[in-house]
Design a protein around this nucleic acid. Structure first.
Length: 835
RNA sequence: GCGAGAGUGGCGGAAUUGGUAGACGCACUGGAUUUAGGAUCCAGCGGGGCAUCUCAUGGGGGUUCAAGUCCCCCCUCUCGUACCA
């Protein structure tokens, strides 16, 4: 410690250098110690650290540092999600190569992160665009291929015209591209898919393992996204079979309403439509309807205000149980991509079918008896389950039983089967982009699709290409990359020129951190077994579906391939979704010009102040508004801690800092200070380690500092006084060190300690110090506060009751009343029930 | 519509198992010190009467000796999602 002024920038530099030089944050597997893996979602190297990053990493760092003080062997790594489109856009704009742009951004951002003093084990740093990273991903891809978990198919795909690439379903938000907000188009393409649906059931059921450990809303979002619904497939035989096709199959969750079917509705995109309408006298009108519906804007078609439209095909099918003729209609509300693209029309029990039937004058057949009987003039569908009527042999059954019985009957007649539908679709991982990991397969005229040989991996992304001005990938036209020989027959072949979705890289990076420098394998088994799963994952809620669902799927798939430990079902044991940092109530953005630059704040106040404010302003999961006066307050507090030390330097000497005292703290002031100190130890530790409520931990430490200021004036300089005051100071520094590590290290050293504060454990809690000489008891009459009284700590029930009854205020409020009951909660209150 | 979360001073937020509502901080007001201050210190700070008291945690009921906290009904806001059959 040089002078008496608090000079954060100097102090912070000093400690950051020392930590780095001493390798303070390097960790290794240690079987003798319990492990704790805390991870913040790694950043995309956009070039600048923003406040959202700072908040995210502050939360992670406090947890990491707190868990270390709790005795855990803590893994806390950092890396870069380095493939992706912005690099290509920047390349076009600034005439630099995406790689150069990315690596220089990483360098700049790493330097910025380092000024914040985060306790990362930088020796494990990784960047996903490096071949030594994506080579493993290519291997995983080939293993998936072998296992049938990855396949190629042609299907209508989400196409972003501005990014010139396809998007996975999860990456289409409100019909727009998740990244650039352009309207997404549909395009028929052959693409690579990962069979995430094979894990649909497990992805859904394992959410139960995360209950209480992940935020409810994230669990709910995943549940909705997977969208499992159980029901029955029902085949309706066609009156006039079309070639080999004899039935139209529908999916329903309400087989109990099967007897209420009066029509079938199919999507205009249904494969049978053309044959069904062939020869119909209104064929032209029907075709016009199909064209009109198909051309409707996707967004518009899915909006709830869209009027139900339809047209009869003129074709009929036969009800599988009653044998009735059922007309087949086209409907604009039937989705081709869900279920079978055909639904049975039960206007009595389904609101959409009801509206459709009313509009086109189709019959409504009551099949469930509601309470109070079937209404005369039905105005809406009767969607509640109940007792069946008009349902043949099933009449009289309750809906639930009927669902089962009807499905069994259909199964016996080979007219249907129980099934489950998922909303979840397979994950399209092909991207028509340059800056991504190459997909390691080739196309051979003779052999077809051939996986690249393992010894030829990685398939290197060529770095000597120029990004095309129009944004399209240069890979397909680059013969040195695309033209190759077939790994099987040696003949001429073409390499796959699509690259992998960047969400592939982020689906397994957390595991690579356990053995980031391993060259022979993706993971060192011992390290992976020791560190995984991530104990605490921290990031924004915007990844609730995309990244978190993909990573969960990857984990299960790699587990089943024997690559991950076989008991690793979920990658992230606990999840904290931190809130956003706002400015004047809205998200910081360049266009609004309301960006607060972390670098400027650090320069002005120091990293410790920025860290303190980010954690103090709000609980971590809540949004908070950046406030310029708020950070002033944080800065003021740290100066107060600093001054507390320098103005009382003579009270703090190493002699007094170590060892227990010879006598107990005697004076009331000392006892009070000692009590406050240990109350704070208890509260702050719990808030930091278990509750993750950093704002209240800080508030408690502020209270202790306030108490020390008050006590200081009443203190002399006896050894006893020095000892108690020194202990309190040491406690402030220790408790505060996960939050503002530099300042605390500096003062800790100034107190005469020769070892670093970050090697310390929490101060020992002395329960006896918590005992109070005098407690204040609330006095109530009929639950209303009527006063307080001070009594000796540990007073018994009778004493409290007696004392309360003799209290003047109590007597006034109970005067003329009958005391019915007296409730005494020792240490808290006395409530007198009087009538 | 469905799902999740949230409504507490001028503001951010405390109150962890039902037990003194408003901790801690910001802003504000008055005072001290100062050449001056955006530095520091002291005091005040939910509303009404301003003393005894009283009303207050989105609204209305209920349970309880006691409710921000538990139960029922309703309102508002935020996020997600949606002709999913």
């Amino acid at each position: 410690m040089k002078g008496t002024r608090y000079t954060p920038l100097e102090i912070e530099k000093k400690w950051q250098e020392r930590w780095e030089k001493e390798g303070t944050w390097k960790v290794e597997v240690d079987d003798k110690r319990p492990k704790y893996y805390v991870l913040e979602m790694f950043p995309y190297p956009s070039g600048n650290i923003h406040m959202g990053h700072v908040r995210n990493y502050c939360i992670g760092d406090v947890i990491a540092r707190s868990k270390r003080m709790d005795g855990f062997n803590v893994l806390h790594p950092m890396g870069w999600d380095a493939f992706g489109l912005p690099a290509e856009n920047a390349a076009i704009k600034n005439q630099v190569h995406p790689a150069a742009w990315t690596y220089s951004n990483i360098q700049a951002m790493r330097a910025q992160l380092k000024t914040l003093g985060y306790s990362y084990d930088w020796s494990r740093e990784l960047a996903t665009c490096r071949p030594e990273y994506y080579t493993w991903e290519q291997r995983f891809f080939l293993r998936f291929l072998e296992k049938g978990l990855v396949y190629r198919k042609e299907a209508p795909q989400n196409w972003c015209p501005s990014c010139h690439t396809v998007l996975a379903n999860e990456q289409v938000i409100d019909g727009k591209c998740w990244r650039c907000d352009s309207d997404v188009e549909q395009k028929d393409l052959t693409q690579w898919f990962l069979k995430i649906t094979a894990y649909g059931d497990e992805l859904l059921s394992d959410l139960a393992l995360l209950e209480g450990k992940w935020p409810d809303r994230v669990l709910a979002m995943q549940r909705n996204w997977i969208g499992k619904s159980t029901g029955t497939l029902v085949s309706f035989p066609l009156e006039a079979p079309i070639g080999d096709t004899t039935d139209i199959t529908v999916f329903t969750t309400r087989p109990d309403t099967l007897f209420g079917v009066t029509f079938l509705t199919i999507a205009p995109e249904h494969p049978l439509v053309e044959s069904l309408i062939a020869g119909n006298e209104h064929e032209d009108a029907i075709k016009a309807f199909i064209t009109k519906t198909r051309n409707l804007d996707r967004l518009l078609r899915q909006s709830d205000t869209l009027e139900k439209e339809g047209i009869a095909t003129g074709a009929y099918c036969i009800h599988p149980l009653t044998g009735k003729r059922i007309p087949i209609w086209l409907g604009n509300f039937v989705l081709a991509g869900y279920g079978t693209g055909a639904v049975m029309g039960v206007p009595y029990a389904d609101q959409r079918d009801f509206e459709f039937a009313k509009k086109f004058n189709l019959p409504v057949l009551p099949i469930i008896e509601p309470e109070g009987g079937v209404p005369e003039n039905q105005t809406e569908a009767m969607t509640n389950p109940g007792r069946l009527i008009n349902s043949g042999e099933f009449t009289g059954m309750e809906s639930e039983a009927a669902k089962k019985a009807i499905t069994e009957k259909l199964e016996a007649a080979k007219k249907g089967s129980a099934t489950a539908q998922f909303r979840l679709r397979d994950w399209n991982i092909s991207r028509q982009r340059y800056w991504g990991a190459p997909i390691p397969v080739v196309y051979c005229k003779k052999c077809g699709i051939v996986p690249e040989k393992e010894e030829n991996l990685p398939v290197l992304l060529p770095l000597d290409l120029k990004v095309r001005e129009d944004g399209r990938s240069p890979l397909p036209e680059e013969d040195s990359f695309a033209v190759c020989t077939c790994p099987r027959c040696g003949g001429p072949a073409r390499r796959e020129t699509d690259t992998m979705d960047t969400f592939m890289e982020s689906s397994w990076y957390f595991a690579r951190y356990t053995s980031a420098r391993e060259e022979q394998r993706a993971f060192d088994e011992k390290a992976m077994n020791y560190w995984l799963p991530v104990d605490q994952y921290i990031g924004g809620v915007e990844h609730a579906i995309l990244h978190l669902l993909y990573a969960r799927f990857f984990t299960k798939a790699l587990r089943d391939l024997g690559i991950y430990p076989k008991n690793l079902d979920e990658p992230f044991a606990n999840l904290l979704t931190q809130g956003m940092v706002l400015k004047e109530g809205s998200k910081m953005s360049k266009s609004k010009g309301n960006i607060v630059n972390p670098a400027e704040m650090i320069e002005r106040y120091g990293a410790d102040t920025v860290r303190l404010f980010c954690l103090f302003a709000a609980p971590p999961e809540r949004d908070f508004d950046w406030s310029d006066s708020g950070i002033e307050g944080a800065s003021r507090f740290l100066s107060r801690v600093w001054r507390l030390f320098v103005e009382n330097k003579d009270l703090f000497t190493p002699m007094h800092a170590c060892g227990a005292g010879e006598t107990d703290a005697v004076t009331p002031v000392l006892r009070e200070l000692r009590r406050k100190e240990h109350e704070t130890v208890k509260k702050a530790r719990e808030d930091l380690v278990s509750r993750f409520q950093f704002n209240t931990a800080i508030a408690a430490i502020m209270e202790l500092v306030n108490t020390m200021y008050l006590c200081r004036e009443k203190l002399g300089d006896t050894n006893e006084e020095k000892r108690v005051f020194t202990s309190a100071m040491a406690t402030v520094l220790t408790l505060l060190s996960p939050i503002t590590p530099h300042l605390c290290e500096e003062l800790w050293e100034a107190m005469g300690h020769t070892t670093s504060l970050c090697k310390e454990r929490w101060p020992a809690l002395d329960e006896s110090a918590l005992e109070k000489d005098v407690v204040t008891i609330a006095l109530q009459v009929n639950g209303k506060l009527r006063g307080t009284m001070d009594v000796p700590g540990g007073s018994g029930k009778e004493d409290l009751e007696k004392a309360a009854l003799s209290d003047a205020s109590i007597q006034r409020h109970t005067e003329g009343k009958n005391i019915v009951k007296v409730i005494v909660v020792p240490g808290k209150l006395v409530n007198i029930v009087a009538k």
